[in-house]
Design a protein around this nucleic acid. Structure first.
Lengths: 116, 116
DNA sequence: GAAACTAGTTTCCTTGAAGAAACTCATTAT
DNA sequence: ATAATGAGTTTCTTCAAGGAAACTAGTTTC
C-alpha cells in the first residue's frame, strides 16, 4: 500500500481495466456460474441465468472468449451442443467473484440489522 | 463452497446485489479513491478522477451516501467546501477494490507476455 | 463591479446497451 | 410432414446512462 500519486494512478488504471473487462450486464454472472460449474452448454447457461436472452448470452460469451477467460468447444452430439468452459486464466478471477459474493451476502444482513 | 442449486442461486443473488450497488461508470473509482485517501473535497475528487463531470460526480456521490458507503460533510470554510469521507462500512469494500486492482495489474503482464 | 472559487443543479442532447421477436440451419423424433 | 431441439443471428426498437454547457449562489479577491 503506497500513497505516491503515481502508484495511486496506476492502481486506478488497473481497477478500470478489470471493471471494463467485466462490463456488461451479464459477464460477471456468466463467469460466476462457470467458475462454479466449470463447464456448461449454451442452453444450460441460458436456463441458469434468469432473464438473459440468446443474443446477449451469445455476445457476452464471445467477448469473454476473446479475452481468454473461457473456451468454446463444439461437441459432436446430435443435435450439436457447444460447451463453454472457464480457462485457468479465467479461474484467476475467482477471488474477485468470491469477494463480491461474500460482501453481497453480508450486505443483506447489514440491511436487515439497520431496518430494525 | 457448496454446490447445491439453492446455495448457488443465493450466491449469484449476492453477487448481483454487490454489482448493482457499485453500478455506474464512476462509483468504483470514487470508492477506490476514498478507500485510499480516506477523505476528499468535491473538487479534489473531480480533479482526481479524470473525465468525470460535475453532474455525474454529484449524482454518484449521492447514491453512495444513500447506501452509507460515504459521508458528506459541509465544512465552514470560505468558500464553503464539502468533505466526502468513506465510512467504516464503505471500508469493508476494500478487499473487492484490492482484488480488482491486483487482477488488473496482473492482466497487464498477461497481455504483455501473450503478445509476441 | 468584474472575475474567480467551491459546490453543485438544470437543460438539452447523443449514443450505446439491452430486449423482444422472428428467423436460420441441421438433425431427429412423432 | 411437422414439430422440437440446440445454437445461435438478424432486425427493429426503446430506454436510460452519460456528457456538454450554461446557470445559481455565496463569498472573496483584484
Amino acid at each position: 500500500m503506497i500513497h505516491e500519486p503515481a502508484a495511486c494512478a496506476g492502481r486506478m488504471l488497473a481497477i478500470r481495466d478489470t471493471v471494463e473487462l467485466l462490463s456488461g450486464k451479464w459477464k460477471i454472472q456468466i463467469i460466476g456460474t462457470l467458475v462454479f460449474e466449470n463447464s456448461m452448454k449454451f442452453m444450460e447457461l441460458k436456463r441458469n441465468i434468469p432473464g438473459i436472452g440468446a443474443k446477449m448470452l451469445s455476445k457476452e460469451l464471445q467477448e469473454l472468449e476473446i479475452n481468454q477467460l473461457i473456451t468454446r468447444t463444439v461437441c459432436d452430439t446430435k443435435p450439436i451442443t457447444v460447451e463453454y468452459k472457464i480457462t485457468p486464466y479465467g479461474l484467476t478471477l475467482e477471488p474477485i467473484i468470491a469477494e463480491l459474493a461474500t460482501w453481497g451476502a453480508n450486505h443483506r444482513k447489514h440491511l436487515f440489522s439497520n431496518s430494525n
